[in-house]
Design a protein around this nucleic acid. Structure first.
Lengths: 194, 194, 194, 194
DNA sequence: TATGAATGAGTTTTCATTCAT
DNA sequence: CATGAATGAAAACTCATTCAT
């Protein structure tokens, strides 16, 4: 009956949907969600405006799917940085964050600016809260193992610090001394005598 | 009809202009610049739409003026926190930042989200860079005086940290332990033995 | 302060709003609600598309207002046809209906086609039911006074008959013998011996 | 692959085409022609969007075919209600109409709302005029045979009456006393002394 | 100075129709 | 014969900006 198999259609759908999502990620990230028009997403994805509405109910749903997609990606990350040695794992995390800031700043920009619009996008709030808390927990556990004082407070400090660095490097761009800060933090948190 | 002196006109201009600016600050801060319409600003300022264009060339110019206004305000702050004792001054700054986060989160939200749109608003970039640098310089100077190691790095760390705390408290809202972090940082940076 | 008085603005609003409503009435009546675009209404009203949304929240709201407007007009009609003699009053009503069919067929077309879409426009149902019932009641009262047999049934018959005539004359247009039927009904219902 | 005979293909065509037509009838009738999308027809017919264009040149052609189909059905009806006794035949017609109103109100709704859009669908006008006229002729002949006065006028009255009843029962739905009116009309037109 | 009606370009969204397979 | 992904033109709607008063 079908000229294409179910699988073939599924592949096509997946491919197109991804093209759109990636285009949206880049544009929402650089220009901001509000300032990006659906037409722009369509052009960048090399797809017709109509097709976007074939895959996404609305502009906001693109954002939602994007968020879902980014979350799913993050699971993989945590597995990558895992290590038995808490200091090594902390270093992995730090290095990963800095690498991301260098290579995927659009994504950070998007997440950051979305986070600020928590009030506008209801679907963001709870996931973000959960995420931050899970990071605090992870950091606290690692810091406890490394024997640092006030691990609960320091966990929050590191969390805020990384966010702050991300933020400032987004604003300052090339001028921000990512390398220098990276080494300094690794030294400070991961190379101290036990 | 009623002949007004130049001064009276000036006062009226000043008053109307301020009402508009304050309304814009609140709305841009809470809803975001793009998501706020000029009409909304007019309503909140209890002023007609037309009047806004009497004082500001365009919506973007409201933002620019707002930015100018906020900058001018900041000069006053620096005078307030000044102190001969570097540790005391650092504490003043920290306490000031936390107080602002508690009371003027809209303003922070606005500045933060604008900062992320540096690409869109050209007029923002240089002033922001200058500001961050002047803060780094100030922190470095204070930290040097307190005899802390690596004052240049730590200056950037504190800068990023404060931004990060601001960011996370904006996202987490009531759930963020501002008080706890405030005391911890004051202890850590301003109460250490010399 | 104001360059125009409140009253002046109110007049302007009233005038524009009416222009739009009248244009909508004609187009919705002739082409149907769904088949008429807001742009077309704007052109016919000689007004910009934007202005329509200044006065009406949505296309559907134009319809709602139109309905309200038409209802309010009808009150006047009932006063016009009133007469102490029930047969005369019945005749007045009949003649009024036929006159409307001749002169305002768009309006009938609109009401008729809307009535068929009761399911789509919730706001229509109850008012329409009320209207039909009030007509039944009026007819029954008049017929009772004229001493006709089965006035309750005949009231419904007349109601349906008038609707049916309206419908068929809309469909057949010029070909429908409105004059002939009008005289026949007047003779039959209003000139019978008591 | 599987070689099919011409007859088999014809059967398939007929079946698919009918499924589509029936789905269209239901949707056009309930939601209206404009408000129904081709996709919806496809879903309801459990057929792909593309297939519809295999059988029908356009959305409007579905409507045309539907109309043709309904017309062809009606021929059967006339045979069913035929009777040598004119009063009996008139009763059969009345009873048939009321039965349809009770069971196939969608179809009535569709025909009624289409009739109102005569201007939009050219192909409707002439057939509808012919149909109405043929009904008038039939009624007039039956009424003449029953010896009623003014059979030409009464034929039009009955025609309009039935349309009006249909219309009002569509609008009022369950609230309309179809049974009561049916009996009344049968008594009035078919049980009168000769 | 102040008003708000009016505009029009741009945005999101829908949908009949085409087409490669 | 059958599929559903893809298109593009047009629809509903928004909003910064202008302008007569």
């Amino acid at each position: 009956m079908s000229p294409k198999t179910k699988e073939q259609y599924e592949e096509i759908r997946e491919a197109s949907s991804n093209k759109i999502l990636m285009a949206a990620l880049e544009l929402f990230g650089t220009k901001g969600y509000d300032a990006t028009s659906v037409s722009e997403v369509a052009s960048k994805a090399e797809v017709s405006k109509g097709l976007i509405y074939n895959y996404f109910q609305s502009k906001e749903h693109i954002l939602q799917q994007l968020f879902t997609y980014l979350n799913s990606q993050e699971q993989d990350v945590l597995r990558q940085v895992e290590d038995d040695d808490p200091k090594k794992m902390l270093e992995n995390i730090l290095r990963y964050v800095f690498a991301e800031l260098r290579n995927n700043s659009d994504l950070w920009k998007l997440i950051t600016s979305l986070a600020l619009q928590v009030g506008k996008f209801d679907f963001l709030h709870q996931p973000l809260v959960n995420k931050l808390n899970s990071y605090y927990t992870l950091f606290e556990s690692l810091l406890t193992q490394t024997g640092i004082k006030n691990p609960d407070k320091e966990a929050k400090v590191i969390g805020a610090l990384l966010d702050g660095i991300g933020f400032q490097s987004l604003v300052l761009g090339k001028d921000y001394p990512l390398d220098e800060i990276e080494e300094y933090l690794v030294q400070k948190y991961c190379r101290n005598a036990t």
